[in-house]
C-alpha cells in the first residue's frame, strides 16, 4: 500500500452562479428567488448608471457639450439602453415597495402558526405572493407599453 495522502476537503459553495442564476438549483414554487435576482441586477444597473448619469447631466451647463451628448442618443444602442433602464427602474421600484413591506414591516408573510403536514411554508403562500405576481404583471405591461411609445418616437416602427 502506498502512503496515504492527507485528505483534502472540497469547498463546495455555488458561488456567483448560485447567487444570480435561479436555475443552478431547481427549487420549486419559488418565484421570490427570480424577483431577488432581478432586483439585484436592476439595482446594480441603476447604481452603475447613477455616477455616469450625474456626469452626463453635469454637461448640461455647457451648451456645446450637451448638444454633442444628445447626438449620442440617436444611436439605436443608446435608445435600446434607455428602454432597459426604464424597465429596470419600474421593476426595482415596484418590487422595492413589496420588499419594503415584507422586510421592513414584516407584512404579507403571515403569522408563525404551528406547522402541519404537508408543511407548506406560510410566508411563500401569503399576500406577499399576490403582490409579487402583481409586480410582475404591472412591470411587464408598463415596460412593454413604454417601449412601444418610446420606440415609436425613435422611429423604429
Amino acid at each position: 500500500m502506498g502512503e496515504r495522502r492527507k485528505p483534502r476537503f472540497l469547498e463546495n459553495r455555488l458561488g456567483i452562479a448560485g447567487n444570480i442564476i435561479p436555475w443552478v438549483l431547481m427549487i420549486r414554487d419559488n418565484p421570490e428567488r427570480v424577483a431577488f435576482v432581478l432586483h439585484r441586477l436592476t439595482g446594480l444597473l441603476l447604481i452603475i448608471y447613477l455616477p455616469v448619469h450625474i456626469f452626463v447631466t453635469s454637461m448640461t451647463v455647457n451648451p456645446q457639450k450637451w448638444e454633442d451628448f444628445l447626438l449620442l442618443e440617436e444611436n439605436p444602442l443608446a435608445q435600446f439602453f434607455l428602454w432597459i433602464l426604464f424597465g429596470s427602474i419600474v421593476f426595482h421600484g415596484l418590487n422595492g415597495i413589496r420588499l419594503l413591506l415584507v422586510e421592513g414591516l414584516g407584512k404579507g408573510i403571515g403569522k408563525p402558526e404551528p406547522p402541519e403536514p404537508p408543511y407548506k411554508p406560510t410566508s411563500l403562500s401569503s399576500t406577499q405572493r399576490t403582490w409579487l405576481y402583481a409586480v410582475f404583471a404591472i412591470w411587464l405591461v408598463v415596460w412593454i407599453v413604454g417601449g412601444i411609445i418610446l420606440f415609436r418616437e425613435f422611429g423604429w416602427f
Binding site: 434607455l82 411609445i149 418610446l150
Partner: peptide, 22 residues
C-alpha cells in the same frame, strides 16, 4: 421619470432633454 416620459409633461422624450427644458 414622469418628467421625461413622452406625452406627460413634454410631448416627446427628446423635447424633455432639450437644454431649454433642462
Amino acid at each position: 421619470v414622469a418628467l421625461h416620459a413622452p406625452g406627460l409633461f413634454y410631448d416627446t422624450y427628446k423635447e424633455s432633454v432639450q437644454r431649454e427644458s433642462v
